[in-house]
């Protein structure tokens, strides 16, 4: 019984960390600019392929590849933001949906062209491959690592969000963009920065996910529903909201799958619906 609980908590936590790392960028983009970026998954997919290429073609070790991916995709996303996204800040959400879906389609076709439709695997370092003994119980090392990365990112993001003037500006802009602009905050610049960090994190999530979920070009779209759920349940624009959303849904998903063999995959949707019926703006969102 205790064992079961520990299993669910541990696996749920690992799954939640993955959801958090990828979704946090999406959440902040939505909160800050009200921009519906359905191409967010495409940045995650691009990150996965960059990790793959840096490791297999250039022989970069796994951790190094993750760092490179975060930086490169984050930087590259600025290009997209300036050239494409910036034109649509004033436009309606429908135009944004159309453009980002279009971008996703193109990304899928492009990556299929270069990498083929088959799934890819990477060789993770040996110290991440085995089991880790913690308190008399063994846990898969890779999942412990995933939780560790998640925790480190939360700490870093908390610091950036809550303790720096940049973070304060971002929070102010999420709360009231016009007001922030009128006191001289360059919201456009803020957005470019958060967009880059968010995309970089998505790419990092994509790199981390190869070992968990495999990698095909359709990665860009098949997990999008989960990311949207996390953002909505957490409340868009909120760091803690995204974390809460990821934890609740990650745990619900894992527990549901563990406890109900017939209908385990219902749980994540049922919990999301329940929370949104009670709190339409999400756990940390403002009404």
């Amino acid at each position: 019984m205790v064992n079961t609980l520990v299993s669910i908590l541990f696996d749920g936590l690992a799954w939640a960390m993955f959801l958090f790392i990828v979704s946090v960028g999406l959440s902040v983009t939505m909160g800050l600019m009200g921009f519906v970026n359905l191409a967010h998954g495409a940045f995650a997919m691009a990150g996965g392929y960059l990790v793959l290429t840096t490791m297999s073609a250039w022989g970069v070790p796994f951790l190094g590849a993750l760092v490179i991916t975060f930086v490169v995709v984050g930087a590259a996303s600025v290009l997209f933001e300036r050239v494409l996204y910036a034109r649509l800040y004033g436009a309606g959400e429908l135009d944004q949906v159309l453009m980002t879906i279009g971008l996703t389609f193109m990304a899928i076709a492009t990556y299929t062209y270069f990498y083929g439709p088959l799934t890819h695997a990477i060789r993770i370092p040996d110290y991440l491959a085995g089991q880790l003994n913690l308190g008399g119980r063994s846990f898969p090392a890779y999942r412990v690592f995933l939780i560790g990365v998640g925790a480190a990112l939360i700490a870093a993001l908390w610091y950036g969000f809550d303790r720096t003037s940049l973070g304060a500006k971002i929070r102010a802009s999420v709360d009231n963009r016009r007001m922030a602009q009128s006191v001289g905050i360059d919201v456009d610049l803020l957005f470019t920065i958060t967009f880059a960090v968010g995309s970089g994190l998505a790419a990092l999530g994509g790199g981390l996910a190869i070992q968990l979920l495999g990698l095909t070009p359709n990665f860009a779209i098949i997990y999008l529903v989960f990311f949207l759920l996390v953002v909505a349940v957490g409340g868009s624009g909120s760091l803690w909201g995204t974390l809460a959303g990821a934890l609740v849904l990650g745990m619900a998903d894992t527990a549901g799958k563990y406890l109900f063999s017939d209908a385990g995959t219902f749980a994540i949707y049922a919990v999301a619906v329940l929370i949104l019926l009670l709190k339409p703006a999400g756990l940390y969102g403002r009404e």
Binding site: D11, T254, A255, G256
Partner: peptide, 15 residues
Amino acid sequence: VRFGPPGPVPDFTPF
């Protein structure tokens, strides 16, 4: 045990 639909690869661990 049902693993869910064939589209996305699920996290198999709980199953």
